[in-house]
Design a protein around this nucleic acid. Structure first.
Lengths: 184, 184
DNA sequence: TAGTCCATGTAAGATGTTACATGATTCA
DNA sequence: TGAATCATGTAACATCTTACATGGACTA
C-alpha cells in the first residue's frame, strides 16, 4: 500500500508555493514555466489533478474567485492540516537514501525552509546534510578507485561528475551555514 | 498518447547495462543496490515489469538459463532493434528542456556513450552540453539578480546552489573534453 | 535443519505525461 | 473580428512504489 495521506515531491512544491500566498492552478503553472523551478512540469494535466489530490486529502482548499469582469479562477490556500503536513516534511531527517536518490528534492525542501520552519531548522538541515555527505562521498571515491581500470572513459568521467557534484554541495552547505551565522 | 515504442530513463539504464553484457533481473537489481547507480530503485516491482516492457517492445530478449545445480534465472540481451533504439537515444541532441528538467538523465546518457556510440559522439555530446549550459546559466543569474531582495535566505541559497551546480557541470564538460583530446 | 541468499514474480494504487477539449476575455 | 492569453479541465496510458508471495539452493 502507498502513502495515502501525504504528498509527492510535486505535491510539496505546490504546498510550499501555496503557503507563501494563495495561488490558482494557472499561477502555479506560470511559476513553473517562468522561474528556475522549471524542473516541474507546467502542463495542466499535471497541475490540476495534483491540486485535486491535495484538496481531497484536506491539505489545501480552493475557493472560486468571481470578481466581475475577471475570468473565473480558483484560488487555493493551505488548511491547518496542510500546514502541519508541510511542516512535518520540512522537519524530516536526512537519510542516506535521500542523498543517493537525488539531491534535488532535498534542495527543494531547503528552499522553503526559512518561511516554513524557521532559520534554526534551516541551519539544522544544512548540518545534517553536510554530515550525510561527509559519510557518502568516501564510498563513491572508493568505488571509483576500485573500478577505475575497468571503466570506459565516459563512464569514469560520469562518476567523477557525480562525486564533484556531491563535493560542491558539501562546500555549499558550509558556505550556507556561514551565511546563517552571519545573519544572526 | 504516449511514446509506445521506446523507453523511459530506467528503461535506457537497463538497456545500457544489458548492452554491456547479458544480465538477469537479479543482476540488475544488485547493480543498482551496490554501485553509484543507486538513484534507481532496486525493488523487484520496479525491475521485473520494466524488463517485460522492454521485451514486449522487442528491445531485449530473455532466455532462461537452466544449468543443472543452478537456480533458474533469465538472462536478457539486446535485440538488433534494441541496440538501434539505444543508439538513437545516445545520439539525441541536447535541448534546453533536458538541461532544465534535471541533468541526471544527461549524465546517464554520457556514461554509456563510449561503449554505445563511440568517442566522437561522446565529445560531440560534451560540446553540445557546454553550449547549452553557457546559454542557460546567465538566465538563472538574471533571475537571481532581479529577485534577490525579495527572496528568503534559504530560497536564495537554494537558487545559488542550482547555479553553482550548473557552473560546476560546465567546468566538468571542459575538463572532460580535455581528457578526450589527450587520449587521442 | 534453520536461516540466508538467489531469483522471479503479482496486485493495488499513486503519480505523471501527452493529447485533446472548452470557453471567456483582452488586444490589435 | 480574429488571435493571443487566461483559466480549467478530462481521457488514456505508462510508469513507479509498496507490499505481498513463492520456492530453490547454499551454509553453518
Amino acid at each position: 500500500m502507498v502513502n495515502r495521506s501525504s504528498a509527492s515531491t510535486l505535491g510539496f512544491a505546490l504546498l510550499g508555493l501555496i503557503a507563501q500566498k494563495a495561488r490558482s492552478g494557472y499561477d502555479l503553472r506560470k511559476f513553473f514555466s517562468s522561474t528556475p523551478m522549471a524542473s516541474f512540469s507546467d502542463s495542466p494535466g499535471t497541475i490540476y489533478p495534483a491540486l485535486r489530490r491535495l484538496e481531497r486529502r484536506g491539505l489545501i482548499r480552493g475557493q472560486v474567485d468571481r470578481e466581475r469582469g475577471r475570468r473565473r479562477r480558483e484560488l487555493f490556500q493551505l488548511t491547518p492540516h496542510g500546514r502541519a503536513e508541510f511542516h512535518r516534511w520540512l522537519q524530516r531527517g536526512i537519510t542516506r537514501a535521500d542523498v543517493e536518490h537525488g539531491v534535488d528534492a532535498l534542495i527543494l525542501r531547503f528552499a522553503f525552509m526559512d518561511e516554513g520552519a524557521g532559520r534554526t531548522a534551516a541551519f539544522r538541515f544544512l548540518k545534517a546534510l553536510g554530515k550525510e555527505l561527509g559519510e557518502y562521498i568516501p564510498s563513491l571515491r572508493e568505488y571509483l578507485n576500485s573500478n577505475r581500470p575497468s571503466m570506459p572513459l565516459s563512464g569514469r568521467l560520469a562518476l567523477e561528475n557525480g562525486i564533484l557534484r556531491y563535493e560542491t554541495l558539501l562546500g555549499w552547505t558550509k558556505a550556507a551555514m556561514a551565511a546563517y551565522r552571519k545573519e544572526n
